[in-house]
């Protein structure tokens, strides 16, 4: 297992890049909605799931199963 500092050394820039991509997607979506006010999406379920995922990720003190929880969030569970 890598030391904690090394985890950040190796993966911080990847995480930064992915977070900016998510921010850009949300900006892109909002611009599209504002640009075409008459064409509101029929369902915002997928967008809602992204915001739920971000809320989950914003919890600093939680169990180490964030990936599994996100995958469940994006799953059709029985």
């Amino acid at each position: 297992m890598l030391p904690a500092e090394k985890v950040l050394d190796l993966y911080f820039l990847d995480a930064r890049c992915m977070l900016i991509e998510i921010a850009a997607l949300l900006d892109r979506y909002d611009r599209a909605v504002q640009g075409q006010p008459g064409e509101v999406p029929s369902s915002t379920d997928r967008l809602d799931s992204i915001y739920q995922a971000l809320t989950l990720l914003a919890e600093r003190d939680c169990t180490h199963d964030r990936s599994a929880r996100l995958l469940n969030l994006f799953s059709d569970l029985p």
Binding site: C17, I20, E21, A24, R31
Partner: peptide, 17 residues
């Protein structure tokens, strides 16, 4: 750049803006 600068998608966003 793949990670540290701008991505193709974000570049197109800026071109649109």
């Amino acid at each position: 750049y793949p990670i540290t600068k701008c991505s193709p998608r974000r570049a197109v966003d800026m071109l649109e803006m």
